[in-house]
Structure formats: C-alpha cells, structure tokens
C-alpha cells in the first residue's frame, strides 16, 4: 500500500488533522474558562467568608445563602414573591413593548409623525419612571396596576427609540423595490418596515428587559408589600442579609434567564441574518 510509505510528518492530511485537534482543544479550553469564572468567584467568596477574611455578617458564604434559599422555599412564601414579581414584569413588559413597536413603526415610516412626536419622546425619556412613581400611584392607585404601569413606562422608551432607528436605517433600496413592485401601505408596514427593523428593535427589547428588572426591584422597594424587591428591602432593613442575598441572586438569575430566552427568540425571528 502506498500510504505506508508516507512519513506521518509529511502527510498533509495528518498535519491538518493535528492542527484541527489543537484548535478543538483550544475551543474547549475557552468554554471551560467561561464556566470557571463564576465558580471561581463563588469558591473564593466561600473561602474568604468561612475563614473570616471578610466579614461573614455582610458577606455570608454562598452555601449558607443556598441553605437560606431552600429554607425560604419550603415555607412557600418565597415563591409567592417570585410569582408576583414575574407577573408584574411580564404584564409591564408587554404593556410597554407592544405600543412602543406599533408607534415606533408608524414614526419610522411616516416622517411627519416622526417629527411631531420625537420631541415628546426626547423630553420624556430622561425622566426616570421611578421618579414618577408617586404620580403613577396617585393616578392608578396602590394596587398592581401602578407597578405594571411603572415597568411599562421604563420599557417603552428603549424599544420605541430602537424601532424608529430600525425603520429609518432600512436600506433605501428595499423601499424602492417595494414601491416599484406596487406595495400598498399595509405591505410596507408588514413586509418591509416590521421585518427590516426587527434586528435593531430586538436589541431595544433586550435593553427593555434589563431595565424592567431594575425597575421592578426599585418599584417594589418603594411601594409594595410583596415581590422580590420587597423581599430584598425588608430583609435589608431587618438586617437579614442572607435573605437579602437570596433576593439579589434571584434577580441575577432571572436577568440571565430572560436574556437567554430573548436570544433564542432572536435566532428564531431572524432566520435570514
């Protein structure tokens, strides 16, 4: 057989194979790095806290926080806090995102409407919705609606601004194509503006999602008697720092989860990218 005479060092396939194997190892190493950083921090924290190098009263070791989490979980109270917060986030998110998309598309497509409305958006955007919470409570009462409206208000702005930018930045040639092939305004809306602006719009929705979490915690600290934010705040005031950390970890967990879900949506909604 001829292959037997080829010195493995000079066999081009073997050389490339070896190279490929090295690349695989390097990629796996990078994946390990990604997973290892949070684990490393947790271990370090655990060690420093257990050895009293940092004050365990302020920084209780992670294993204790997990223990507290399990304890709170068995009582069932924790889940009602999580449930009410998630409800507020989802309802507020939808109430903010849907009008923002519709209004954003209209503003993007029709420049007179854009010129008319954009100063209002610009003027309202810098005001933190939380600063309006007293007014919102006066208008909508102390119930759930006021929290949902607060979330909606803070989600609305990044989404509308990104949607308008998404439509405005659609390559002119696609508008020309649509016009040349006789698209009516309904088709302009659904076949050109909506899909064309979707990538930038989804970035805005990602941002809105992060802001929704920030807002829910703050809103529940100020005017609620349930929810993760309320849990964090009351635990802090009672100096139950382990309970407080459980709340913080939950927020971090949900933020991460929502980001993953939205990334998944993004890949589903943008098969053409």
């Amino acid at each position: 057989m001829r292959e037997k005479h080829i010195d493995p060092i000079h066999d081009p396939i073997a050389v490339e194979q070896e190279d490929w194997r090295k690349r695989q190892i390097r990629n796996r190493f990078k994946q390990v790095l990604t997973i290892s950083s949070p684990i490393f921090i947790l271990l370090l924290w655990e060690f420093l806290s257990r050895t009293d190098l940092i004050d365990a009263r302020f920084f209780p070791p992670p294993t204790k926080i997990v223990g507290t989490f399990l304890m709170m979980g068995t009582s069932g109270e924790l889940f009602s806090h999580i449930g009410i917060s998630l409800y507020r986030i989802f309802a507020g998110f939808l109430l903010g995102v849907i009008p923002a998309i519709i209004l954003g598309l209209i503003m993007g497509l029709y420049s007179p409407i854009r010129h008319f409305l954009s100063p209002l958006i610009m003027a309202l955007m810098p005001i933190p919705t939380l600063a309006l919470l007293p007014i919102i409570i006066i208008i909508f009462g102390v119930g759930e609606v006021s929290k949902v409206v607060t979330i909606a208000g803070s989600v609305f702005f990044p989404v509308i601004i990104n949607t308008v930018a998404g439509v405005v930045n659609i390559d002119r040639i696609y508008l020309d194509v649509a016009k040349n092939y006789g698209a009516d305004s309904k088709n302009f809306f659904f076949k050109i503006a909506l899909p064309g602006s979707l990538p930038v719009m989804l970035e805005g929705i990602q941002m809105g999602q992060a802001i929704a979490l920030l807002t829910i915690v703050a809103a529940e600290m100020m005017g609620a008697n349930s929810g993760i934010g309320y849990l964090i705040w009351t635990s802090y005031k009672a100096f139950l720092l382990q309970e407080m950390y459980v709340g913080l970890v939950l927020i971090s967990f949900f933020g991460f989860l929502f980001s993953l879900i939205l990334r998944g949506f993004q890949n589903k909604l943008l098969p053409w990218r």
Binding site: V177, N180, G182, K191, I192, P195, L198
Partner: peptide, 17 residues
C-alpha cells in the same frame, strides 16, 4: 399588467424574504 418592473443593482433582493 403592471407598467414596468425594475431589476436593481446588486442589492435589490430583500434579505428577510
């Protein structure tokens, strides 16, 4: 029939269709 249809320069194909 439509009066005319245009074949555009390179980028006329709509990417999301």
């Amino acid at each position: 029939r439509p009066l005319q249809s245009m074949v555009f320069q390179e980028k006329g194909v709509i990417p999301w269709l």
